[in-house]
Amino acid sequence: MRKVNLRVEIAGITLKNPVVLQSGCFGYGEEYRDLIDINRVGAVVTKTITLKPTAGNPPPRFVETAAGLLNSIGLANVGIKAFLKEKLPYLKKFSTPVIVSIAGKKKEEYLELVQILNREEIAGIELNISCPNIRKKLIVGQDELETFHLIKAVRRKTKLPLLVKLSPNVTDITKIAKSAEKAGANILSLVNTFSAISVDVETKAPKLGGVLGGLSGPAIRPIALRMVWQVRKVTSLPIIGAGGILSCNDALEFIIAGANAVGLGTVIFINPHAAQEIITGLKRYLSRKGIYDVNELVGSLHEKTS
């Protein structure tokens, strides 16, 4: 097999390969100690961390739907203090870049988190501006101006690469993407989960304790893919594309549509070995196609012009 290059550089972060373990599904990493070798993946994004410990939403927190998973976790996490003391040291043992995902109830909380993280040796910060499971009328990532102001304010406080996780629950994702770029984001990560609901017809109650949840899994893949394709057309920023990727073929779709790297989430629950399988599959595909470098594949979609 011809030697191919899987190395990707996004905003100064070097990934061994374009496979990223996305925020949430991978916890703090240590839980998967026996199942996933962190050294072999491109990067890891931690569970979203908040300033104070967050208990999360009332159970049930999961419902399975057709080809999908509906969750209402509600950003349950240990808080920044315990995260730095108890969780981050494990992730830093590996040669893989660690990106810390953060969320705040207001701008000041994001800024405080960023200032704390500036002192840490991490590869970057991901701003989660799109969690659908927090009870607010409008989340930051659904408004162009709010997105702009938050990122702009955070940008002034840190030199670390800034990733922004975009919400798919918008009319036009390209507008939010452009806002994020203008405000100084370095990498766009898309998409977060789709706001959704499921009903128990016997009790006539919502199946989730949090009523609304976020839909992920293969059910959302073609829509997520469409959004990556759209955003690629309006930005030159690196994109981490995600949404229901299960196999190497799925990952290739995202890369060809314009993603520089792909994010794995829900698949980790189904097949913890997915990352390794996708990495091996990418090598085989590139070799078979006679493409030396995975970067050549990014945005290589042939579009017929009519």
């Binding site: 949430g24 599904c25 991978f26 916890g27 703090y28 839980e31 998967y32 199942l35 569970k47 999360g56 159970p59 927190r61 999961f62 998973l69 969750n71 976790i73 349950a76 996490n77 829900t266 980790i268 629950f269």
Partner: peptide, 10 residues
């Protein structure tokens, strides 16, 4: 979902 303590779902 995960069964290993990561997802906070159960």
């Amino acid at each position: 979902a995960c069964g290993v303590g990561a997802c906070q779902g159960c």
